[in-house]
Write a protein that binds this DNA or RNA. Structure first.
Length: 469
RNA sequence: GGCGCGGUAGCCAAGUGGUAAGGCCCCGGUCUGCAACACCGUCAUCACCGGUUCAAAUCCGGUCCGCGCCUCCA
């Protein structure tokens, strides 16, 4: 299994610190609103990474936080006149609903920043003691960036460029820093803000320290994979490395994975451009499985563009897989042969080549676009070979293969048993009778009537099938 | 200014040395009362220029175009 490592800018063989086990930390969202579709990309991508690893028999300890203390949360709380925790709790619940709809597995652990303050105070104290951090007059604690010799190794920046290039960005209140590159570990509260007591001042943590602390607490001082959106490379992940490695004295994460951004109609998504979509917005128009399929149709490290046209194309592609699965289930019920024949055995060997292709794609830095193409080839093979004369065992094997591969991608391809309203059932029966009598006008009327109710009929060789539009 | 990424068919997207996967959309056909589904078939020489090589979309140099990050946006 190869993983592209931002740290080394190379694809590397994945070797877990502990054989058979994976410690993985994925930076989660700040919960001040419903999550947007950009937030969904890392969730889907890294959930797929996790699923593939589990498929390969690795035990994945997957930790993903919710940042529940932050300026934006406080701002929203002030606007609504409620406690910050009301806002964060609300959006954590909503986020979990969206994740479930996207078929993103819950993390092994979803820690909250506000519940890990003690650990943060410990780590900050430790950093001060070791000379990596200092408290300013007003109680703000800063990390002494230049004291960490390897600072910049992840984002491949050198400190002098950073300082020189950003001198103009120095803002007021920064004068108390020893160096403009220093970043905040702990900051004083302002009026009306939530705060915690600390040796330096009543205040709250900086953003970066929480991930260092939660990662350490739930996964240990050294982890296998740390992941997130590419915008987090600098400064967030760079700062995490500085904090963790300075405090723990050992390499923090072996592999750093970053997904590229999702654009909307070729522009960066932003509220001011009016092209901002929450996952909930998309759910009104599409089954979220289609969004997941769409996200996996490109490599996670390439920029992906979102548009209604592309979602419609994704819908059609995704349904091609569903149709094949439905057909297999139908044939399975029709088949009267139980045992696999020799020629069917040979066909399964051929079908297996698509499974191999799928795995090879995933082994190569999780090339989901290529992996999906392997599923399509398997689907094509299935559509060509499967018919009601084949044995149940053969059909079941094909069905299993498709389901297993789709499940690695987190795609649900089996519609849940839907219950027909009795009047719909009755209409379908009436239409069949009309067709028998070659009263096609009546048959079409009924079909249109059902279509108006969102029921699409298909007269296949195997009988009448229906689905919701 | 610094660092980095990308330009492959109408659209999306794999492929990083040996004569272009897959999906969507068109078009022709089979099946079908029709439609839908499915199947068969058709559809590109890989931004441009030059170089290396027996051989390049794939390596090197240049040009044009698009994009990202550079202190809290996934």
């Amino acid at each position: 299994m190869k993983i592209y490592n931002t740290l080394t800018k190379k694809k590397e063989d994945f070797i877990p610190l502990e054989p058979g086990k994976v410690k993985m930390y994925v930076c989660g969202p700040t919960v001040y609103n419903l999550i947007h579709i950009g937030n969904a990309r890392p969730m889907i991508v890294f959930d797929t990474v996790r699923r593939y690893m589990e498929y390969k028999g690795l035990e994945v300890n997957y930790v993903s936080n919710f940042t529940d203390v932050d300026d934006k949360i406080i701002k929203k709380a002030v606007e609504e006149g409620v406690e910050a925790s009301v806002i964060s709790q609300r959006y954590i619940e909503e986020c979990k609903k969206d994740m479930a709809a996207l078929n993103v597995k819950p993390a092994t652990m979803h820690p909250l920043a506000t519940e890990e303050i003690c650990g943060m105070l410990d780590m900050i104290g430790d950093l001060i003691e070791k000379g990596y951090a200092y408290a300013a007059e007003d109680g703000t604690v800063y990390f002494r960036t230049r004291s960490f010799k390897e600072y910049g190794k992840l984002s491949h920046k050198n400190l002098d460029d950073l300082q020189g290039g950003n001198r103009s960005l120095l803002v007021s209140g920064e004068h108390q820093k020893e160096d403009s590159l220093d970043f905040v570990l702990w900051k004083p509260k302002k009026d009306g803000e939530p705060y915690w007591e600390s040796p330096w001042c009543n205040g709250r943590p900086g953003w970066h320290i929480e991930c260092s602390v939660m990662s350490k607490k739930y996964l240990g001082e050294q982890i296998d994979i740390h992941a997130g959106g590419e915008d987090l490379v600098f400064p967030h992940h760079e700062n995490e490395i500085a904090q963790s490695e300075a405090a723990n004295g050992k390499e923090f994460a072996k592999y750093w994975m970053h997904n590229a951004f999702l654009n909307i109609d070729n522009k960066k998504m932003s509220k001011s451009l009016g092209n901002f979509f929450t996952v909930r917005d998309i759910a009104e128009k599409y089954d979220l499985q289609i969004l997941r399929f769409f996200m996996l149709s490109a490599h996670y490290r390439s920029q992906l563009n979102f548009s209604a046209e592309l979602m419609d194309a994704a819908k059609n592609g995704y349904e091609r897989i569903l149709t094949s699965v439905e057909n297999l289930k139908y044939l399975l019920a029709e088949s009267t042969v139980d045992v696999l024949t020799e020629s069917e055995g040979e066909m399964l060997v051929e079908a297996n080549s698509f499974v191999t292709k799928f795995e090879e794609a995933m082994e190569d830095d999780f090339n989901t676009a290529d992996a999906l193409s392997a599923i399509f080839e398997l689907v094509k093979y299935t559509n060509t070979q499967a018919d009601s004369k084949k044995s149940k065992e053969f059909l079941q094997e094909l069905l299993n293969k498709i389901k297993v591969l789709a499940d690695i991608c987190g795609l649900v391809v089996e519609k849940q048993a839907e219950i027909l309203d009795t009047d719909i059932e009755e209409l379908i029966k009436q239409r069949q009778e009309a067709r028998k009598e070659r009263n096609f006008q009546r048959a079409d009327e009924i079909r249109d009537e059902l279509l108006a109710k969102g029921i699409v009929l298909e007269d296949t060789r195997e009988g009448v099938k229906w689905k919701r539009a």
